[in-house]
Design a protein around this nucleic acid. Structure first.
Length: 447
RNA sequence: GGCCCUAUCGUCUAACGGUUAGGACGAGAGCUUUUCAAGCUCUAAACCCGGGUUCGACUCCCGGUAGGGUCACCA
């Protein structure tokens, strides 16, 4: 039994989208599951459209996704080999040089065509079973623009054979290409690899993901703060599942579990929202230091930032969101907030002015007694009795204590609970914020 | 249009002739002794249609319908 060899063969003529990378993921997982090798072949046969920046982006994305290749090369590196086999086919009479009138700009006056005898070609797709194509209406199709410019179909067949590729795992949009490629293959005397045509990934409009339907370069997800392990996990689960009810698999677990037999036949829609939830799961797995470094998080106070990580873990679905929170809704943790008197007093029971000030003063004493580093739970235990005592005086009393406290600390209508805030700010900072709030509350009404 | 492929909750999917059709994301509700978030509990939500085959079909076959792919001197 030959060792398994798969390949991912992108053309560097644009940024690749998630669907393309899903193909890479499957090819990689399948190869590694069978302890085989995974080849990345840059299909740059279209010299006019291929761009180094696209190639760089593809390689970058593959590295980010953690899909290391056992070999990486450009198809154009094999030009001599392609030429040699093209000449062979022409000598054989299975291909011929054809002089014709250019139909479109860029067309050559001389191309190389494959002599197609017609009939039908049948192959057994690993995922879809037997597929038969009538090859007659293909006519004598073009296999090269010149001896040094083979067309995709020809180069693919030669390279797959030379690289001993055992499983051609590619998108379902190649199904109709398979027959003509097999024709070339036979003419060249090469063995046929096994073909596995993956279902396509569709966008929210149910169209094939493509450059003009809003498909994004994968690196954009990275830049938004999506974790590669989350993207890998999500991509692997698009059109495949391990057969049990696990939802989150690591790189190694995916390799272990992957099986072409469980690949879906129908196409799937790429769902950003689901990706986000998978990402949040993997973000939450990260230790605080990794969370900060991998998320490129920065804040004025590093020590404080570490304490905020749990907050970020429960609120942010991407690191992009986490960064926004640090400079936005959670920025009050680093800078004293502006306080609005009306907000501060918003939960005072009707008819009992001054409760907020009294409550804050009472809390001051309790908080001063605390030491640095006390937990939110301990804080809660220390403070809740005060709130409960107030509740005993009337419904809503807890709010009368807790709201001004939380607002004094945060200056925000919405924020994490006050106990958590104090544990992050520390007793010293908390006390000074409360004192400021008392001062604001004591201000005589304006107007 | 020709050819090809596909078809389970809104989405990703489980089921491989016998289940109250399961899970996840999302949605809704409630509970968590202030707000937000998280968490927990609960709820709604699907077998495309029609014929067969069978004691019995989401599962097998045929037809229809719908969706998608492909018909390049791009890959």
């Amino acid at each position: 039994m030959n060792p398994v060899v798969t390949r991912f063969a992108p053309s560097p003529t644009g940024y690749l989208h998630a669907g393309n990378y899903r193909t890479a993921v499957f090819a990689y997982l399948f190869a590694k599951h069978h302890r085989g090798s995974f080849i990345v072949r840059i299909e740059d046969t279209d010299a006019a459209r291929s761009k180094p920046e696209y190639e760089a982006n593809i390689l970058e994305a593959l590295a980010w996704l953690n899909l290391p290749a056992d070999a990486t090369y450009r198809q154009s590196d094999h030009r001599a080999r392609h030429r040699q086999l093209l000449e062979k086919l022409i000598a054989d009479g299975t291909a011929y040089v054809s002089r014709e009138k250019p139909q479109a700009p860029g067309d050559r006056e001389e191309v190389i065509r494959f002599k197609n005898l017609g009939g039908s070609v049948t192959f057994s797709d690993v995922i879809r079973g037997e597929i038969t194509t009538d090859v007659t209406d293909l006519g004598d199709f073009i296999i090269a623009r010149s001896l040094d410019e083979p067309v995709f179909h020809f180069a693919v067949v030669v390279d797959d054979a030379d690289e001993r590729v055992t499983h051609v795992i590619r998108g379902g949009d190649h199904i109709s290409n398979t027959a003509r490629q097999m024709l070339i293959q036979r003419a060249l005397g090469f063995p046929a690899p096994l073909y596995a045509h993956l279902p396509l990934i569709l966008d929210s409009q149910h169209k094939k993901l493509g450059k003009r339907t809003g498909a994004k370069a994968l690196t954009e997800y990275r830049d938004r703060g999506i974790l590669p392990e989350a993207m890998l996990n999500y991509l692997a689960y698009l059109g495949w599942n391990p057969g049990d009810e696990r939802e989150y698999l690591s790189h190694d677990e995916l390799i272990e579990a992957f099986d072409l037999a469980r690949v879906q036949k129908g196409s799937a829609i790429f769902d950003d929202v689901k990706l986000l939830s998978v990402n949040q799961h993997w973000m939450r797995q990260l230790p605080a230091d990794d969370f900060i470094s991998r998320g490129n998080l920065a804040a004025p106070d590093t020590e404080k930032l570490r304490k905020i990580v749990p907050l970020l873990k429960e609120r942010a679905r991407t690191f992009g969101e986490a960064r926004e929170m640090l400079s936005g809704e959670l920025s009050f943790l680093f800078h004293e907030p502006k306080l609005d008197k009306n907000q501060l007093l918003a939960k005072e029971p009707p008819g009992r002015p001054g409760t907020a000030i009294t409550a804050l003063q009472g809390l001051l004493g309790a908080i001063k007694a605390l030491s640095e580093g006390v937990s939110a739970e301990a804080l809660k235990e220390a403070i809740m009795p005060l709130a409960n005592a107030e509740e005993a005086k009337g419904k809503g009393g807890r709010g009368a204590v807790l709201w001004p406290l939380r607002y004094a600390l945060s200056g925000a209508e919405r924020s994490p609970d006050p106990f958590t805030l104090i544990s992050i700010l520390g007793p010293g900072e908390s006390v000074s914020r409360i004192q400021r709030a008392i001062a604001v509350a004591s201000t005589s009404p304006e107007r």
